[in-house]
């Protein structure tokens, strides 16, 4: 990343992302102390809106920004040169191939490298933003990452309200306070099925803590 891009990224988050997320929307964070700031970590969150990654990145202090790496679909976030530059240089997205047919290289190589550099990787294992405020089945890609990095803490985060503020397919941002629930960290359980079960349980616990009525 060039220095110009680094400065642009810093300004983009300081002057646009943070004012929108923290002032226009506003966060109501439960268990902030469970968030890990030092060292590598994998943040696993539910996906409702384009703003999800920005909200998760705003949970961390600005000095951590260079280490924050959301993972996004290559076919979407890298679909042309400008969007690819913005996704990579400004947002800091790691590209991930949703369709692995014909891909011969290791699809998780970039994520591996990021975790080795002590970066914080943000994942949305629902795969798609889906219906607003409804949880989809979690994909198992996260289990592969945890298996390769058995020491790295996995932290589940449940976001509520973004599906109201900026749902899929809507261009109009309407201010709502975003509820953020953070789970206790855990690590690779030694086996894929139990890991996915642990992940889903921790997410469901956070959802239960929220006790939100479904979006009518």
């Amino acid at each position: 990343m060039t220095n110009v891009n680094r400065i642009l990224r810093w300004l983009f988050f300081l002057l646009l992302v943070r004012p929108v997320v923290l002032v226009l929307l506003g966060l109501n964070i439960r268990h902030r102390e469970r968030l890990r700031i030092d060292g590598a970590a994998v943040i696993v969150a539910n996906h409702n809106s384009h703003l999800d990654a920005f909200v998760l990145m705003s949970l961390f202090p600005m000095r951590v920004l260079p280490r924050l790496r959301p993972v996004g679909a290559r076919d979407y976030f890298f679909r042309n040169r400008f969007i690819a530059w913005f996704s990579q240089a400004i947002v800091g997205i790691i590209a991930f191939d949703r369709d692995l047919r014909g891909v011969r290289t290791d699809p998780l190589a970039e994520i591996d490298a990021a975790l080795q550099r002590e970066e914080i990787v943000i994942l949305f294992p629902e795969g798609t933003r889906g219906e607003p405020e409804r949880l989809e089945k979690l994909r198992t890609g996260v289990a592969h990452i945890a298996e390769r990095h058995p020491e790295t803490p996995i932290i589940t985060v449940y976001l509520h309200g973004l599906g109201k503020a900026l749902p899929r397919g809507e261009g109009l941002l309407v201010p709502f306070i975003i509820d953020v629930f953070i789970a206790n960290e855990f690590t690779w359980t030694g086996e894929r099925a139990s890991f996915m079960k642990h992940l889903e349980d921790s997410m469901n616990e956070l959802v239960a803590e929220g006790r939100f009525d479904p979006w009518q």
Partner: peptide
């Protein structure tokens, strides 16, 4: 408040 999806606008 419990709002409807249509009320965003």
């Amino acid at each position: 408040i419990p709002a409807r999806r249509a009320d965003r606008q």
